[in-house]
């Protein structure tokens, strides 16, 4: 404290010129930004900028070639009198439209998508997601049993809650349930089972969501024809 110049003076005025020292604000919680690293680094320019430029060119090239080869669809002029059969929304909504086949619009069109968006938003704030601990440390028959019971309950729900069994949800549920239960029942050898055992619970929940969403979208897009009947794309074409 011998040098009075170095003492931090608390701010007492609104005039920025009166602030004698530089302010460094360090948030009290742990922040990645204040961490020092000994990671090897390189300059963004040119190394990163060049790579980004190449990626951009590759994407542009791909899209240009696609646009030269395949024409965007254009049908007859809109005609409110003439309902095409089937009427389909764009592909990213066909998972929802497929759900309309099983559930009333309130469930398929409002509650389920609303629930999905809400879950995506709260994912990083939801406690079980944060630590990403391995689901199994060793063999655990009760654990395997617990997983299988939950799997069975979810499957039963989607078999009986809808107009007809929602197979695009039930099958992935059973698949993911088995993936989770296997390493608990059989132990962690070979390496695949070890890998499965060291994934976290959120990993499996997201995997399940991903497979369900992909299955619903693929079925709605490729396997549905007039009256939302089941069709085979290689036999009847894509509607």
């Amino acid at each position: 404290m011998s040098d009075p110049e170095k003492v931090l003076v608390p701010e007492r005025t609104d005039d920025a010129r009166a602030v004698k020292v530089r302010l460094a604000v360090v948030q009290d919680e742990e922040r990645a930004t204040v961490e020092r690293t000994d990671e090897p680094e390189c300059m963004s320019f040119p190394h990163l900028v060049l790579r980004e430029w190449i990626a951009f060119l590759a994407l542009s090239l791909g899209l240009v070639v696609l646009s030269l080869l395949v024409n965007a669809p254009l049908e007859e002029m809109a005609n409110p009198e003439k309902t095409p059969n089937p009427s389909k929304a764009p592909w990213y909504f066909l998972g929802l439209q497929e759900l309309l086949h099983y559930y009333p619009p309130l469930v398929a069109g409002v509650l389920l998508p609303g629930f999905v968006v809400l879950s995506l938003i709260v994912v990083p704030y939801f406690d079980i997601n944060l630590r990403r601990e391995a689901i199994w440390r060793g063999r655990s028959l009760p654990g395997a049993l617990k997983v299988l019971i939950v799997t069975a309950l979810i499957s039963l729900f989607f078999i009986f809650s809808a107009a007809h069994p929602v197979w695009p949800i039930v099958v992935p549920t059973i698949f993911v349930g088995l993936l989770m239960a296997l390493p608990a029942a059989l132990g962690q050898r070979p390496a695949v089972l070890h890998w499965l055992a060291t994934r976290s619970l959120p990993f499996y929940i997201f995997l399940w969501f991903l497979i369900v969403a992909t299955a619903l979208t693929a079925i709605g897009t490729l396997f549905r024809g007039p009256g939302w009947s089941f069709t085979l794309p290689w036999r009847d074409g894509i509607y």
């Binding site: 669809p73 049908e75 007859e76 002029m77 809109a78 003439k82 389909k88 929304a89």
Partner: peptide, 10 residues
């Protein structure tokens, strides 16, 4: 076109 109209209607 028809695609646009009915896609948005759905």
């Amino acid at each position: 076109d028809q695609l646009a109209y009915w896609g948005v209607t759905v």
